[in-house]
């Protein structure tokens, strides 16, 4: 009933813009190290499991002689001690391996770029260039980084505990209220990497995705330049009407569009929303249709989200979507 209205935009879901979100698809410095360690440990453990299972099967089906009592008891004691010794060796080896990986990961050189990450229910705010410098800008749910550069993320939460996890680039790190954590990334290859909140954070924990876009330094600079720049002024009549609706309706109270009256900080910064691949923290592909669907009824698409259902006429809705689409 309610959900049928949600299906068309859902069916339009992203095809090209979701990078794989997989530990095994390692494209970052840390993730590559981790993948090697993970596969190594899994291999060792698989061998151990195989040996134990073989021993179990043999113990169950072996042919039994009449009187092998006392001798085999002693032999068994020797074998068991040997196996315990082997266990000690294996886990010592794994401990050392894991220790060296930890050390290798924490020996990264100083950061060439620092980005502030603030998590809130249920989206990500990325602030570039410090919070009060003139050319600082904020974006949401989409993190652009230059390939091959060491990027340091300052992780903070403004409500509950979240966890920043982009498996193709690095292991996860929690964002904890009252504390600041850091995570260092270095993408080795350009690409789009999907990530997701990994610590249960309430109703819409499932829909708190982000994309990391690693691109060549020049592309990154171009992107940052445009983000820093002013908002695109609407020219089309529909878009102009959309802007008016945006300012007149409740939208402006929570969202910022730099260069306009809209300066709310509760929701994501929309100055360059059209440059993003998805909306609503990775929920929908960023198209006019899904923008309209999202604005029309966020609570059906993402029940419990803090974006309220604002009653709009269909004209207003279309105009708003057109306006949003023009905010490149």
């Amino acid at each position: 009933m309610k959900s049928t209205s949600a299906l068309p935009p859902l069916a339009l879901l992203v095809s090209g813009c979701s990078g794989a979100q997989s530990v095994l698809n390692a494209e970052g410095h840390a993730a590559i190290e981790l993948k090697a360690l993970i596969l190594g440990i899994i291999f060792v453990c698989a061998v151990v499991w195989l040996l134990v299972t073989i021993a179990l099967v043999l113990a169950l089906v072996r042919r039994r002689d009449r009187n092998d009592g006392a001798i085999s008891e002693r032999k068994a004691a020797a074998v068991v001690s040997g196996a315990v010794g082997a266990t000690v060796l294996v886990i010592t080896g794994l401990t050392i391996a894991s220790f060296y990986t930890t050390r290798a990961l924490s020996e990264a050189p100083g950061p060439e770029l620092t980005i502030d990450v603030t998590a809130q229910q249920w989206w990500w705010r990325f602030t570039y260039g410090g919070s009060n410098s003139a050319d600082a800008f904020a974006t949401a749910n989409e993190l652009h980084i230059p390939v091959g550069k060491v990027v340091r993320l300052r992780l903070r939460s403004s409500d509950v505990i979240h966890s920043f996890w982009v498996p193709s680039l690095a292991g996860k790190q929690d964002l904890i209220p009252g504390r600041e954590n850091t995570l260092t990334l270095r993408a080795e290859r350009p690409g789009v990497y999907r990530g997701q909140c990994a610590e249960f954070c309430g109703l819409q924990h499932s829909h708190m995705a982000l994309f990391v876009i690693a691109e060549a330094q020049a592309d990154y600079e171009r992107w940052a330049e445009r983000q820093r720049g002013p908002v695109a002024e609407p020219t089309e009549a529909e878009a102009v009407a959309g802007k008016a609706a945006f300012m007149a309706k409740q939208c402006a109270a929570c969202h910022t569009i730099r260069g306009t009256r809209a300066s709310g900080t509760t929701g994501p910064d929309l100055t360059h929303i059209a440059s993003r691949r998805t909306i609503a923290a990775g929920l929908l592909e960023n198209t006019r249709g899904s923008l309209a669907a999202w604005i029309a009824d966020p609570q059906t698409l993402k029940p419990g989200t803090h974006m309220p259902l604002v009653p709009l006429t269909s004209d207003e809705l279309r105009q708003l979507a057109v306006y949003m689409e023009g905010l490149e």
Binding site: V23, L94, T95
Partner: peptide, 10 residues
């Protein structure tokens, strides 16, 4: 293992 866990935790 700490590094292993950072990938599979949660």
């Amino acid at each position: 293992s700490v590094p292993f866990d950072t990938q599979v935790h949660d």
